[in-house]
Design a protein around this nucleic acid. Structure first.
Lengths: 202, 202
DNA sequence: ATTATTTTATGCGAAACGGTACAAAATGAG
DNA sequence: CTCATTTTGTACCGTTTCGCATAAAATAAT
């Protein structure tokens, strides 16, 4: 797996670097971030960044992909089927808010919805990542909705596909509203209303 | 009202210009748009743009404000209280999609959610416009929800404030998904599910 | 040791960027 | 007609931008 490579070894960890890059893009967006800013944040000079990740767009796409993969992991964990659907949804929204509210300056929301949305028109590859991410997210929730219907947690005439999209819509709204500066309190109230909308009042 | 001004008269209509500016920002975002691009789109040279609207951020904020004002007008019209709540919501979503899907290249979604969200962290004034816009939108819908409860269109224990936020969440999701490239068909299905979620199945 | 290979660091360069100085043009005031 | 005022168009300024060319440094292979 890890054969020793021939030339001079890298002085940095690509994965750690990509995480730092993500932080910067997350706050400033793709177009609003310069390679110099990324260079400063990662402690790497531009040629090293270019050598490891390619041009700016590639670097951004790699950062998006890392976020997407991590998010799907968090989602899968939150949807633990040994819990009730109500608990699952509350966990999904709760963990999302933990991530969305982690910003230093202003709360930064969702990396994808907050920054990729802006680039999606001009950059087809960004649009594709965004679309795939949203669909994958919907799909995971839909599977849980289907299971919930089988278990009787949801009525028999439930449409898991559309109900999952409604559940995702709450997430999208949390993402936008976080970035608009809403308080945690306000956001948690919305999340709870979302859970009640789907699972009924407790 | 319109006193004749003293110097050389303007050769352009500021309102029309602002609409053209909006189109460009809508597709490319704030950071992704150059003054040269705006100059070309408006047929004005940069000094004229600067003289009429100030710097790039001011120009963007003016474009956002125009969009916000128009959107609130469309919303007020769609919420005609002589119609049922169900009809109102269907109209709100329908007109939103008409606007969101008007793009030439890819469908461009909501100007605010699609572009201002990206700048909201770094530019406080943009964040404020975004926040105020979302709140005003919620507020208009909440008024209609309150009326619906009084009329018996909604159960007596309805919380108009939170229900309005759920209705807005569907809008936010439509905005994001349009920009991600979803088809009109898909989006209309989500809109309809949203209406049913709030008003019950037809 | 020598060579091949890869990464690092400095720094270049052409283009794009936002903003403005300045003079010409077009209007109203006196 | 002359002057003050405002807009227009050209041209420019200093900075930033992205990408790369180049050489030094660090490793493995021979």
């Amino acid at each position: 797996m890890s054969e020793k490579k021939r030339g001079r070894p890298r002085a940095f960890d690509a994965k750690v670097t990509l995480e730092k890059v993500r932080e910067v893009f997350w706050d400033r967006g793709f177009a609003g971030t310069s390679l110099d800013t990324l260079s400063a944040a990662t402690q790497l000079n531009r040629p090293s960044l270019y050598g490891a990740f390619g041009d700016k767009e590639n670097l951004y796409l790699d950062a998006l992909e890392g976020y997407r993969a991590e998010s799907m992991g968090v989602l899968a964990d939150a949807l633990d089927p040994s819990l009730t659907l109500r608990e699952n949804l509350a966990r999904v929204y709760g963990r999302a808010l933990d991530i969305y509210l982690h910003g230093e300056t202003a709360a930064r929301g969702c990396f994808l919805i907050g920054t990729a949305t802006a680039e999606a028109i001009q950059h087809e590859r960004v649009r594709d990542v965004l679309n795939r991410s949203l669909n994958d997210f919907d799909g995971e929730i839909e599977k849980r909705m289907t299971l919930a219907r089988e278990r009787g947690e949801l009525p028999g005439d439930t449409d898991p596909h559309m109900l999952a999209k409604l559940a995702s819509a709450i997430m999208h709204s949390l993402a936008v509203r976080t970035r608009a500066g809403d308080s945690r309190e306000t956001l948690e109230a919305l999340a709870q209303s979302g859970v009640e909308m789907i699972c009924g009042k407790a």
